[in-house]
Amino acid sequence: MKKLIATLLLSMATCLCVAQNAKLPANVELKALDGSMVSSSTLQNGDKPFIISFWATWCHPCNRELNTIKDVYEEWQEETGVKVIAISIDDARSANRVKPHVDGHDWPYEVYIDENQAFKRAMNVINVPHTFIVNAQGEIVWQHTGYAPGDEEEVIEKVREIMGK
């Protein structure tokens, strides 16, 4: 019995050691702006990390965040090669307004619609905005809920950190 418990304790310790970052959910269907469906497994940025930002057309802080990042996006991309993927959680009420919203505000991001919020649930997002950083291996390495002015600085700092800059 003692041996058994010792073995179990050891295996528990091993379990703690292998604690690691979760992978991006692979099988969630997202709607591209041309109406076609893509799988969440296709979200990537080559050998560079990327940012996933959950937002909605009706959400003020989300719009503030994505409009702010837009102003510095070119610099971010030049420096780090990072990419922003904006996931709209607008449902059938406003999903058809997502493309006009994105184009009207001239957002340079890759945008998908998570119309029934399957991706939002799989990513454990409670409220928008919610921002993730995913590394080149497809692992979620950082996340943040809400947006206050200046939070974008923390996002790019984390990206630099991940890239070892």
Binding site: M12, C15, L16, V18, A19, Q20, N21, A22, N124, V125
Partner: peptide, 24 residues
């Protein structure tokens, strides 16, 4: 051990039996 493996309180995503636990 089972409950420990699946205990969400431990941290961020956990490597569990080759998989991961996440939550909110």
């Amino acid at each position: 051990v089972f409950s420990f493996y699946f205990s969400p309180a431990m941290s961020q995503a956990q490597g569990v039996l080759g998989g991961h636990v996440t939550g909110n």
